[in-house]
Amino acid sequence: MLVLIRPSKVSSMMSLQRILYVASEIAPFLETSLVSNCVRKLPEAMQSKQIDVRIVVPKFGTINDRMNRLHEVLRLSGSIVSVNDVDHSISVKVSTIPNTRLQVYFVDNNDLFGSRRSVFKDQNNNFFEDNDLRMIFFCMGVMETLKKLEWEADIVHCHDWITALIPIFWKKLYQNHPLFTKAKLVFTLYNNTFSHHFPFLTERIEKIGIAREDAVLLTPGGFRNIIQFAMDYSDLVLRGEILDAVEFEDLFKSNELPWVQNDDQYNEGYFAVYKSLLLPV
């Protein structure tokens, strides 16, 4: 299901040639929510239309390198991201989705991702206290990976809360880099909510260069704040499913689009949405 929240305004015509998908997970490498299925289908559908597609996800420790045939891309690895005054190195691995031509890039850091044998919760089912640091690192890692790829997107489609900082990084931290000047940012919401709050998230975002007046919008660092933040800096916001969690109540006013099933019509629906972003208003 697609629900339009806010249309983009653009001043000139652009052709749709390149789409970047950034997500929390993708099948078959990791499947914990609806995100994995959506992000698995959409890129292949767009690639079938001769669109150049790139996919970037975190390399969670639950993803086995050998079983999934992941290997490190040395030319993309080695960048350093400073999060909360601690330097973290970026390792980028790649694999191909079986029976497709789709390559997936995995952003990894052993301390924050690779060494943990779970996704967002520890063995006692407690939300990791540093999931905010992991979010910051992953989103910065995506930006740095794109710089090394020297690849410019027309559409950047972010899925789920861990990608929520991509829009502001794109428009505020990297706005002067030539690779990050033209893309339109799409953010898709899912019911992957949590009750944890990150009391230092605003401060940590400020430290990496986000202005105080922008960073304060993340206070007090809850799921709702993070989602609202992503919505404010995206050109288009979509729903990946019916949003029934209390955290979404009164968050936005929406204009419903028709239900779109997971078939050719579903793919055409997304394609039309992407194209509409690039049309002059």
Score class of each variant (00 low, 15 high):
Ile5Glu: 00
Val10Trp: 07
Met13Cys: 13
Ala23Thr: 04
Ala27Phe: 04
Pro28Arg: 02
Phe29Tyr: 05
Phe29Gly: 01
Glu31Leu: 08
Val39Ser: 01
Arg40Ala: 00
Glu44Asp: 13
Met46Cys: 04
Met46Arg: 06
Met46Val: 11
Gln47Asn: 15
Ile51Gly: 02
Arg54Lys: 15
Val57Ser: 05
Val57Glu: 03
Lys59Pro: 08
Asn64Thr: 08
Asp65Trp: 04
Leu70Cys: 05
His71Cys: 12
His71Thr: 10
Leu74Glu: 13
Arg75Asn: 10
Gly78Ile: 08
Val86Thr: 14
Ser89Asp: 11
Ile90Trp: 02
Ser91Val: 06
Lys93Leu: 12
Asn99Gly: 12
Leu102Lys: 04
Leu112His: 02
Phe113Pro: 01
Ser115Met: 06
Val119Met: 10
Asp122Lys: 12
Asp122His: 12
Asn124Leu: 12
Asn125Leu: 14
Phe128Met: 09
Phe128Asn: 08
Phe128Gly: 08
Arg134Thr: 09
Ile136Ser: 02
Phe137Thr: 03
Phe138Asp: 02
Met140Ile: 03
Gly141Arg: 00
Val142Tyr: 10
Glu144Ser: 06
Thr145Tyr: 07
Thr145Lys: 07
Leu146Asn: 01
Lys148Tyr: 07
Leu149Met: 11
Glu152Cys: 13
Asp154Tyr: 06
Ile155Gln: 00
Cys158Gly: 05
Ala164Arg: 02
Pro167Ser: 10
Leu179Ile: 09
Leu179Lys: 06
Leu179Glu: 01
Thr181Leu: 06
Ala183Tyr: 02
Lys184Arg: 15
Leu189Gly: 03
Ser195Thr: 11
Pro199Gln: 11
Pro199Thr: 13
Glu203Ser: 15
Lys207Trp: 05
Glu213Tyr: 12
Val216Asn: 14
Pro220Trp: 13
Gly222Tyr: 09
Arg224Ser: 07
Ile227Gln: 04
Gln228Ile: 10
Ala230Asp: 07
Asp232Met: 14
Tyr233Arg: 05
Ser234Asn: 05
Ser234Tyr: 00
Val237Ile: 08
Arg239His: 13
Gly240Thr: 02
Gly240Asp: 02
Gly240Glu: 05
Glu247Trp: 11
Leu251Ser: 06
Ser254Asn: 10
Trp259Glu: 12
Gln265Pro: 07
Ala272Asn: 12
Tyr274Asn: 04
Tyr274Lys: 03
Lys275Tyr: 03
Leu277Pro: 00
Leu278Asp: 03
Leu278Asn: 04
